[in-house]
Simulated scan of single mutants.
Amino acid sequence: MMATKTKTSLKRLGRFLLWTAVFAGFVVLLVAAGKEKNDAKCKDIKISFKAEKSKVFLETADIKALIIHNKRDNPVGKASREINILAIEKTVEKEPWVKDAEIYIDNNQVLHIDLTQREPVARVFTFNGNSFYFDPGGERIPASPKFSVKVPVFTNYPTDSQRKLSKADSTLTCQLIDIASYIVADTFWNAQVEQVNITPDREFEIIPKLGEHVIEFGEGTQVDNKFKKLLVFYKEALNKVGWNTYSRINIAYQNEVYAVKKDAKTALVPTDSTATPRVEEDPSMRVQGRPVVAGETNPPKRNPNNKTAGNKGRSQQPRAIYTGQH
C-alpha cells in the first residue's frame, strides 16, 4: 500500500518537473527570440495613408524628411531596441497635415508609419491676404506650395490670429465650417459654389459658378433649410426666366426667397410686409402658385430670432418667391 502511494507521488512529481522544464524552455525561447528581434536591424521604412489615393496630399518623402534629419537619426540600420517609436510618432504628428500616426516594427524588421491626414473642408483668405484651411473640427491647416485642395473658398475672414478666438470670431468660424461642410457633402452645391464672401456684418454672400447673381445667405444658421429653398428657387424660377435675370437673390429670410432683377431700381418687398405692394397676375411668372410681387420699399430688417413672423396660416415648408418689375 505504501509502495503504491510512493509510486503515485513520484509520477506526479515527474509530471510536474516535466511541465516545469517545458515551461522554462518556452520562456528561454521567448527571451531568446525577443533578444534576437531587439538586436535585429531595421531594414526599411514603409509609409502608408489611410485615405483614398486621390485624397492623399502629403508625400512619403516629406514624412521621411521629418524623421531623418541626418544619418544618425535614420532608423534604417539601427537595432530595433535603439529605435524610439514614441519619439518618432511625436515628430510625425507635429506635421500640421497629420491628424494621427501609428508606428510599429513588424517581424520583417520594417518600420511602418500609418498616417491619418487632416481633411480640409474650407480654404480661407483673411483681410490681409493670408490663406489657410479649416478641417471639420476647426483646426487650422497651413496652405502648402506643393498642392491645393479643392474645397469651398471663403474670403475676408477677419483675423489672422492663431490664438484663442474672440467669441464673435469663434461663432463666425463655426458657421463658416457648417456652410463649407454642407457644400462639400452635396455634389450639386460643391460644383455650383465658386466662393463665399464674408461681409462686414459677418454674414455670408455666395458667388455661384452658373448665373450672374450674388446669393445673400445671411448668417450661417439654418444652413440646410436655406440651401433647400434656394434649390427650389433655382428649379421653379431661374429655369423659367433665365439664370442671368437677377442680380441678387436673398435667402436669409425665414422660408422665403427674395430676388432683385438686374433692371430693378428698388429692392423688393416680401409678401408679408406691411407695405401695400403692386401685384402682377402674370401666370407665367409664378413660383408654386404665388404671384410676382413688385415692391416699392426695401424689405424690413429681418429679426433672426423671429422664426415664425409673417408665416401664420402658411405652410412652414420652404417656398420660393421671386419678384421684380416687368
Rank of each mutant, 00 (worst) to 15 (best):
Y322S: 03
L238A: 03
N306G: 15
N255K: 04
E95N: 11
T8S: 10
E119V: 15
F227C: 00
Y182T: 09
G310E: 02
P270E: 03
V279A: 13
D100I: 08
V260K: 00
I105W: 02
K53D: 07
G129S: 13
G34A: 10
K99Q: 12
L86G: 10
E205T: 02
Y104I: 06
T171N: 13
W97N: 00
T6E: 15
A21E: 12
W97D: 01
P208G: 07
V110W: 02
I67H: 04
K229H: 06
S148L: 14
Y253M: 02
K312M: 07
N197F: 03
P142H: 14
G242V: 09
K301F: 12
A3H: 12
N190W: 06
N298P: 10
V28F: 06
K35I: 06
I113Q: 03
V279S: 11
K99Y: 12
K55R: 13
R163Q: 15
T126L: 08
P145A: 08
D272F: 05
W19M: 08
T271M: 09
K312R: 10
K94H: 08
E205P: 02
R15E: 10
A87D: 10
T155E: 09
E212I: 11
E236W: 03
F188A: 10
I67P: 00
K229N: 04
Y234V: 06
V149H: 03
F125A: 08
D106P: 04
I179R: 03
W97F: 13
F217I: 01
L210G: 10
T173C: 11
M1I: 13
R123C: 03
L111W: 02
T297W: 05
N250G: 01
K229I: 07
D114H: 06
A87V: 06
S80A: 14
E281H: 15
E256V: 01
P270F: 00
K7A: 15
S247W: 05
Y182D: 05
Q316D: 09
Y258V: 04
Q109I: 07
S315A: 12
I67K: 01
N197R: 01
P158G: 08
A168Y: 07
P120K: 01
V22H: 08
T173G: 05
R15C: 12
R302Q: 14
K312I: 11
P145T: 07
